[in-house]
Nucleic acid binder design. Structure first.
Ligand SMILES: NC(=O)c1ccc[n+]([C@@H]2O[C@H](COP(=O)([O-])OP(=O)(O)OC[C@H]3O[C@@H](n4cnc5c(N)ncnc54)[C@H](O)[C@@H]3O)[C@@H](O)[C@H]2O)c1
Ligand SMILES: NC(=O)c1ccc[n+]([C@@H]2O[C@H](COP(=O)([O-])OP(=O)(O)OC[C@H]3O[C@@H](n4cnc5c(N)ncnc54)[C@H](O)[C@@H]3O)[C@@H](O)[C@H]2O)c1
Lengths: 222, 222
DNA sequence: TTTTTATCGATATATTTTTATCTATTATAC
DNA sequence: GTATAATAGATAAAAATATATCGATAAAAA
C-alpha cells in the first residue's frame, strides 16, 4: 500500500552534477567551512544558483535562508543518495593503458567504487600487480564474480573483445557495466550499462570551438 | 543582411551522438556496405530510428525512401560537420597514467585530433617519449603553442596544478581545453572548455543500478 | 526595534529534447 | 503496370530540463 508515496522524479542531469558539488564540498569541509549557500556553490562550479538549488533538492537536505546548507550534512546527503557511503566492489577487464590508469585512480575509490582486481588474457600480465591490485586470468572472472557477489564490471578491453567479455560478466551475475569501449553492448533490460564516450566529448568540443570561431569572425566583420 | 539564413539549430545531444554513428558507419564501409537505413543504424546503436533520423539531419546529407543513406556520403557529412576531416593539432599537459593512455589512444587520432607532444614538469619524464611522441618541459608549452598555432590543449595534470596550467595554455593562445581533471576551470567567455567527468558517469551508473534493484525487489514482492 | 539583505523553497514559465504522426517517395513483388 | 512495403522528411505533440518569479525566513545592519 503506497502511503502517500511522494513520487520524487530523479532527473539524470541533476544526478550527473552531484559529484561536482561533492568534490567542492569535500574541499570546503577540509577548509573547515560549516555552511555553504547555493550562490557560492554555483560560483565555484560555474552554474546558475537556481540549478544548484534544484539539484540539491533530490538529496532531501534542507538549508536555511540567509545562511545556506550545512556542509557535512550535504556531503552525507549526496553520498547517501548516490550510494557512495559504503564502497562497492568492482572487477575490471582489460588491464591495458586505460585499464591500469583506472585501477590506480584514487578518484574512483573516493566515489564509492573499489576495484578489487583486474582481469586480462595476456599471459605476460597475469600474475603481476597494478597499483597494488593483482591481475588475474579472465577465465577466473565468472567464478570470482559469483563467489564475491560482485555486481559491477569495468570494461576496458579492445573493441573486438568487448561484447564477448561483457556477456561473460553478465552470465556470471554482473548487473552494471561501466563500458569504456566504443562498442554499443547488446544486453537484456535488467542490465545497466554506462557508456563512457570520449568521442562524444571530443565532438562537443569540436562543435563548440567551431561556433566560437564563427562568432568571432562575425564580430570582426561588423 | 540575412538573405534568408536558414537558422539551423544544432542540438548538443545530437552532436554527441554523431561519433557513435560514425564508428558504426566506418565499420559498415569496411564491410563494403554502400547504403544504410536509419532503422538499421538505430538497431546497431540501440536507439530509436526517429532519433537517428533527427540527428543525421544536421549533417545535411539526404537519404532515399526504401533505401536509406549512402554510407560514404554520410561518413563524410558527419566528419565534415564535426571538422574531423582535417586533423587538428593538440598539446597534452600532464603525461601521467591517464595522459599517456590518451597519447597512445588511436581513437583520438581517428577523430581528427593529433596529439603532437606531451608536456610535464617531472624531470624524469622530460626528454623521453610516450607512444612515439616526445615529452617536453611544460615551460616550453607557451612558445610552442604560439609557433605552431595550436588551438587545443588536453589537461591531465593533478587537480592542484590544473588552474595554473590551464591559464598558461590560454595565455599562450589555446582556445579549447579538453579538461580531464576534477577542477571547474575559471576561464573567459571566448575559451571553450569540455570537461570529461568520470565521476558523473559513475553517479549515473550508481543511480541506475539502485533503481534497477528497487524495481526488481518490487516485482519480487508482488 | 525596524529595516535591509541574502537566500531558501515553492510555483510558474520557457526552452530544449524526445517521441509520435502523417505524407511523399521509391524499390520490390505481384 | 499496379500494389505493397519500407523509409525519408516534415510537422506536431509530449516529456524533460532549465530558468525565472515570488513570498517566506533568518541574519545583520541601521
Ligand atoms: N587508451 C585510452 O586512452 C582510451 C580512452 C578511451 C577509451 N579507450 C578504450 O578502452 C579500451 C582499451 O584501450 P587501451 O588503450 O587500454 O588498449 P590496450 O591495448 O592498452 O589494452 C587492452 C587490454 O585488454 C587486454 N585484452 C585483450 N583482449 C582481451 C580479452 N578478450 N579479455 C581480457 N583482456 C583482453 C589486453 O591484453 C590489454 O591488456 C578500448 O576499447 C578503447 O577504445 C581507451
Ligand atoms: N588516472 C585516471 O584514470 C584518471 C581518470 C580520470 C581523470 N583523471 C584526472 O587526470 C589527472 C591526472 O591523473 P593521473 O592519474 O594521470 O595522475 P598522474 O599523477 O599519473 O599524472 C600526473 C602527471 O602530471 C605531471 N604534473 C604534475 N604537476 C604538473 C604541472 N604543474 N605541470 C605539468 N605536469 C605536471 C606529473 O609529473 C605526472 O606525470 C588528474 O586530475 C585526475 O583527476 C585521471
Amino acid at each position: 500500500m503506497d502511503t502517500e508515496a511522494v513520487e520524487k522524479v530523479v532527473r539524470m542531469p541533476s544526478v550527473k552534477r552531484l559529484p561536482g558539488y561533492l568534490c567542492i564540498l569535500r574541499r570546503f569541509q577540509m577548509q573547515g567551512r560549516e555552511l555553504v549557500s547555493t550562490t557560492h556553490l554555483a560560483e565555484e562550479i560555474g552554474l546558475a544558483p537556481i540549478v544548484v538549488r534544484k539539484d540539491l533538492e533530490i538529496t532531501g537536505i534542507t538549508g536555511k535562508p540567509k545562511v545556506g546548507y550545512p556542509v557535512p550534512e550535504l556531503i552525507e546527503g549526496i553520498e547517501n543518495f548516490l550510494g557512495w557511503n559504503n564502497a562497492t566492489d568492482a572487477f575490471l577487464a582489460g588491464v591495458g593503458c586505460l585499464g591500469s590508469a583506472l585501477m590506480g585512480y584514487q578518484g574512483i575509490r573516493n566515489n564509492g567504487l573499489n576495484i578489487v582486481a583486474g582481469f586480462d588474457n595476456d599471459p605476460a600480465k597475469i600474475g603481476s600487480t597494478v597499483h597494488g591490485r593483482s591481475i588475474l586470468p579472465l577465465k577466473k572472472l565468472p567464478d570470482l564474480v559469483r563467489r564475491m557477489h560482485v555486481r559491477i564490471g569495468i570494461l576496458t578491453v579492445p573493441a573486438d573483445a568487448a561484447e564477448e567479455v561483457a556477456q561473460m560478466m553478465i552470465s556470471a551475475g554482473i548487473k552494471g557495466i561501466w563500458n569504456f569501449t566504443t562498442v554499443d553492448l547488446k544486453t537484456g533490460p535488467d542490465i545497466v550499462v554506462q557508456k563512457e564516450d570520449l568521442s562524444s566529448g571530443l565532438a562537443a568540443l569540436s562543435v563548440k570551438l567551431k561556433r566560437a570561431k564563427e562568432k568571432k569572425e562575425e564580430e570582426t566583420e561588423s
